[in-house]
């Protein structure tokens, strides 16, 4: 964990509501895909936890959906603006498996991109199932393809790819582990439909984002956990719905 200042390099919409922000700063505290940062936004009291889409030595990519006042203000940020960030928060995904399957829904997809990049760098054949509501909301599909992933898109309204949800794309896919992130109904469906162990990334309203306030606690097979500190990634076998 680290508190540090980042400067915006670019901030542009990918769809009507989803934005991609590139920032420059000290990324050394970010060690695993699936971790998140907590942004201070002027005018908002609490920080906003945003998953890390990708990072390298100097830059950080965040992909976020405008859902409220905080993300609305984020979307207005211009090149050169700065944000006070807590970085390297959460446990992140543990890389494993020789035939990994990635299942992402909506703004649950961005952290899977950084994961896919690292799995591909390790030489793993990656299958990514990306779920959206409708064709106009699709983002990151081409970027996953460019990594060399096999990409399957699903849309709830059937306007692109496989009609339905990410779990409707599972038939015929072979995998020895999976990684998922998305809205809770999707995570529940993935839990029921998958046949191997896997890692789930959860979302919860947070106070601090670094384990101090106990605002985001959940019950698991292995005891009480804080989504922000002991998560956001939980193993399938420890989840209690």
């Amino acid at each position: 964990m680290q508190q540090t200042t980042f400067q915006v390099l670019a901030n542009r919409p990918l769809t009507d509501a989803v934005y991609r922000m590139e920032l420059q700063g000290d990324t050394t505290a970010i060690t695993r895909p699936g971790q998140f940062v907590n942004l201070h936004i002027d005018g908002c009291y609490l920080r906003r936890p945003i998953s890390v889409c990708d990072w390298d030595g100097q830059t950080l990519t965040l992909i976020y959906k405008v859902v409220g006042e905080g993300t609305r203000r984020m979307a207005q940020a211009r090149k050169g603006d700065t944000f006070d960030l807590l970085t390297g928060l959460g446990n992140g995904y543990t890389l494993r498996g020789n035939a990994p399957l990635l299942l992402g829904g909506g703004v649950g997809i961005p952290p899977l991109y950084g994961l896919a990049k690292r799995l591909r760098a390790a030489g793993k054949p990656v299958t990514a199932v990306l779920g959206f509501n409708t064709a106009s909301e699709i983002f990151l599909r081409d970027e996953f393809s460019a990594l060399g992933c096999r990409v399957l898109v699903t849309t709830a309204d059937g306007s692109a790819g496989i009609p339905g949800f990410v779990t409707d794309a599972l038939a015929g896919l072979s995998y020895d582990t999976f990684y998922t992130c998305g809205p809770e109904p999707m995570l529940r469906a993935v839990y029921a439909a998958t046949v191997t162990g896997g890692q789930f990334s959860f979302e919860e309203r947070m106070g601090c984002g670094f384990g101090a306030c106990m605002g985001c606690s959940c019950k698991t097979v292995t005891g009480y956990k804080r989504i922000c500190k002991d998560g956001p990634v939980l193993e399938k076998e420890e989840i209690l719905w």
């Binding site: 609490l46 947070m206 106070g207």
Partner: peptide, 18 residues
């Protein structure tokens, strides 16, 4: 949960003595 709500210049918590 949710145990946390944002307010103007503050927050509400309902952690409940965890």
């Amino acid at each position: 949960t949710p145990r946390i709500a944002e307010c103007t210049a503050g927050m509400i918590n309902a952690v409940g003595l965890q």
